[in-house]
Amino acid sequence: MPTFRIFGVLQRFAICYFLTAVIEVYSMNPQESPEYVWYWKIRDIVRSSPQWVFTLVLLIIHATLTFGLPVPGCPMGYLGPGGLHEWGMNRGCTGGAAGYIDRVVVGRSHVYSHPTCVTIYASNTPYDPEGLLGALTSVLMV
């Protein structure tokens, strides 16, 4: 339990479907009559505009955190693997803001400690590719 990995693929599915369900429940329109309306060809797009607004807000939050959150010891907006990438200039910046948020929220010991970047770039910073921040953009796909 001291090194139990919190985030994973199934957990990301759960977060994404939960957020999508909340958005749908709170922005759902009542059923309209089956008559044709002037915008019938794009009716589904028009009627789901509140859902699109919520989704765009999530994407803006993601972009703001990814490119605007100051991560200690890392350049602003860094998205690289850390380690030996760029001749080791950003050794402890694995995952940038997404990795930093995961390490702060759940702790270093509960983040995936053997991602691909450990082998390829000799990074020693744990990083979870299925972390919390990435779930915000996955809601768009759901």
Rank of each mutant, 00 (worst) to 15 (best):
M1K: 11
P2E: 15
T3K: 12
I6E: 05
G8W: 07
V9W: 11
V9A: 14
V9N: 10
L10T: 13
L10F: 10
L10Q: 11
R12L: 08
A14Y: 00
C16Q: 08
Y17G: 01
F18N: 04
V22D: 00
S27T: 15
M28S: 11
N29C: 07
N29D: 15
N29K: 15
P30S: 12
Q31V: 12
E32A: 12
W38N: 15
W38Q: 12
Y39C: 08
Y39A: 09
R43F: 00
D44H: 06
D44T: 05
I45P: 00
R47F: 07
S48E: 11
S49M: 13
S49D: 05
W52V: 09
V53F: 15
V53G: 15
V53C: 14
V57M: 12
V57C: 15
L58W: 06
L58T: 07
L59C: 14
L59A: 15
L59F: 14
I60R: 07
T64P: 02
T66F: 00
T66N: 02
P72S: 10
C74R: 03
C74M: 05
P75S: 01
M76I: 11
M76R: 14
M76D: 07
M76Y: 04
G77A: 04
G80R: 09
G80N: 11
G82K: 06
L84R: 08
W87I: 02
W87M: 11
W87N: 14
G88M: 04
G95Y: 00
G95P: 00
G95R: 04
A97R: 01
A98D: 09
A98T: 03
I101H: 05
I101E: 03
R103A: 03
V104Q: 13
V105P: 02
V105I: 15
R108P: 03
S109V: 05
C117M: 01
C117A: 00
C117Q: 05
Y121W: 12
A122N: 14
S123W: 01
P126M: 00
L132F: 11
L133Q: 10
L133T: 07
L133P: 11
S138Q: 12
V139W: 04
V139Q: 02
V139A: 00
M141D: 03
V142D: 01
V142L: 04
V142A: 08
